[in-house]
Amino acid sequence: MEKLWGGRFEKNTDSLMEDFNSSIGFDKKLYHFDIIGSKAHATMLAKSGIISDKECKEIVDALMEIECEIESGKVEFSTKNEDIHMNIEVLLTNKIGETGKKLHTARSRNDQ
């Protein structure tokens, strides 16, 4: 998968840099809290009319599935996705496609 910020580079990131830049080894413990925040954010987007109620339900349901998959040991986090936020976002978009990308609307990584 292409990195969200990788479009301006011609070559792939060296794996040494990915390992150095990645915080997933530490912040993977925060998955539950990241998912809680993401479900709340999706709900706000729906209540604000930015996404539909159907899209909100699809996002929230997928996040709950992802949390169950993490808790049951079915998820292997990747240093290529840097942190818990990006790992969950990739899992979400892999699961539900374009709708998953809408979760990032009106939200910066600093907000997370």
Rank of each mutant, 00 (worst) to 15 (best):
A40Q: 04
D53Q: 15
K80C: 11
G25Q: 11
G49D: 05
D53Y: 15
K57N: 15
G37Q: 15
K28H: 12
V90Q: 00
I24E: 10
G73H: 10
T79W: 08
G49W: 06
S23Q: 05
I66V: 01
H32D: 08
G49R: 10
G6C: 14
G73V: 02
A40L: 04
D61I: 07
S22K: 01
T43C: 01
N87T: 09
N81C: 03
I84D: 06
G25D: 07
D27M: 04
E67I: 07
L16R: 13
I35V: 00
M44H: 09
K11C: 12
F33I: 05
E76S: 11
S15L: 04
F77M: 01
R8K: 14
I70Y: 06
G73N: 10
I66P: 00
T79A: 15
L91V: 02
F9H: 11
S78A: 06
N87Q: 10
L30Q: 09
L91G: 02
E89M: 07
S48D: 03
Y31G: 00
E69G: 01
L45K: 04
E55M: 00
D83E: 12
D14I: 09
E69H: 10
S48P: 02
V75N: 13
K11V: 06
M64A: 15
S72T: 14
S38A: 07
M86Q: 09
K80A: 10
I51C: 06
M64Q: 14
D34Y: 09
K57L: 08
D83C: 01
C68A: 15
S38D: 05
E89A: 11
S78L: 02
K57Q: 13
D14F: 03
E55D: 10
I24V: 14
E71D: 13
E82Y: 08
D19Q: 09
S38P: 00
H41M: 03
A40Y: 12
N12C: 02
K74E: 13
I88V: 01
F26V: 01
L45N: 09
V90F: 05
V75E: 12
F26I: 04
F20E: 15
R8H: 06
E10L: 12
E89D: 09
V75R: 08
G49I: 12
E89L: 00
I70G: 03
A42Y: 12
L91E: 14
R8P: 00
S15H: 04
S78N: 07
K54Q: 15
I50P: 04
F9V: 02
F20S: 12
N21L: 13
K28P: 00
L91A: 05
F9I: 08
D83N: 04
T43V: 08
I84M: 07
M17G: 12
L45W: 07
S22M: 01
G49V: 10
E65I: 03
T13H: 06
E10K: 10
I88W: 09
S22W: 02
